[in-house]
Design a protein around this nucleic acid. Structure first.
Lengths: 170, 170
DNA sequence: ATGTATGCAAACCATTTGCAATGAC
DNA sequence: GTCATTGCAAATGGTTTGCATACAT
């Protein structure tokens, strides 16, 4: 697959980071990186662990968290916390920055490739003293499916309201 | 203070929500709302609880979480999860949407009032089937202070490469 | 040879949950 | 009088930590 080229690049990037910071280049670390770059979308620790175990690479949770910390530091991975309890991760290298549409009702997350320049000139000016490594845009709302479902529900509610006891609004 | 007018508005908003959804209008719920709208910036559950206890209003954590859920639902409060473990909250009504600059080194969060229109026309077109209630823009990077500190540190590092203790967690 | 990284299991701690008592309706 | 809501305490579960062992350098 042509994914292998990307994997080579991130591996080189990771190696550079490890060398610079005098961290050891363990097989576990490279295996974690490789697995992450085999995943396209979001993932959490549990699924990453399972995916690695399934392909017969044994890692501990501790190592996974440890490695993830390093990958976050060198911006090869990005962490999200969409409302829920578990952190979601996502590979960051060669991954166009995109917004996230998060449905507050069903919790589904849709990616939205925003083609606009990330920051306007005036923003850049303001931000020049802040060294940006990446940004995350989370757009919360109700997805079209849930809007439809909600309308149906409302209709039912109105019916039952009319049939049953009702609270008079002054 | 002229904050009281705002408080009246959100109280009315909350009442409407509670009525619509047939939830009870308990003193606890209104007290929580009132306290939240006395806080200007971000806060977490612990500090909110303490603040309430200090002003002699006893609430349980359970009620706090419960009420917060309602306030999130009716968009009177927004929840953030900036990297860390604890969720941060922020009042949402009458609060201009702003971006968050999050320093990956010191963890400090700076608000950045973005004066640009939230969405371009092309974005709006794409998003028209998604009912936006609010959005959060998180910009991660290194703040100017930390950049300076880092430079100094680097200089020291070059002099004596003994400094291995980097970011030790408490 | 040295000390970092791993794996395991226990600890941590914000959040959630179960249940009896309370109080809004 | 009902039953949603509260408060308390215990449970949950993702993440972190301590420590003995393994292994990168």
């Amino acid at each position: 697959m042509e994914n292998s080229k990307l994997k080579e690049q991130v591996k080189a990037e990771f190696t550079a980071y490890l060398t610079l910071h005098k961290h050891r280049k363990t097989p576990e670390r490279y295996a974690v990186l490789d697995h992450i770059y085999s995943i396209k979308g979001h993932f959490d620790m549990e699924s990453l662990l399972n995916s690695m175990l399934e392909s017969n690479f044994r890692v501990s949770r501790a190592t996974l968290y440890n490695t993830m910390e390093l990958l976050l530091c060198c911006n090869l991975v990005v962490r999200h916390q969409f409302g829920a309890n578990v952190a979601q991760y996502e590979r960051a290298y060669g991954n166009e920055n995109h917004d996230h549409l998060i449905c507050q009702r069903c919790g589904k997350i849709k990616e939205y490739k925003n083609n606009n320049p990330a920051f306007t000139t005036s923003q850049k000016k303001y931000l020049q003293r802040f060294q940006i490594s990446y940004y995350s845009m989370y757009i919360y709302g109700i997805c079209s499916k849930c809007i439809a479902a909600h309308k149906t529900e409302d209709r039912k509610l109105k019916k039952s309201k009319n049939n049953n006891t009702q609270i008079k609004k002054k």
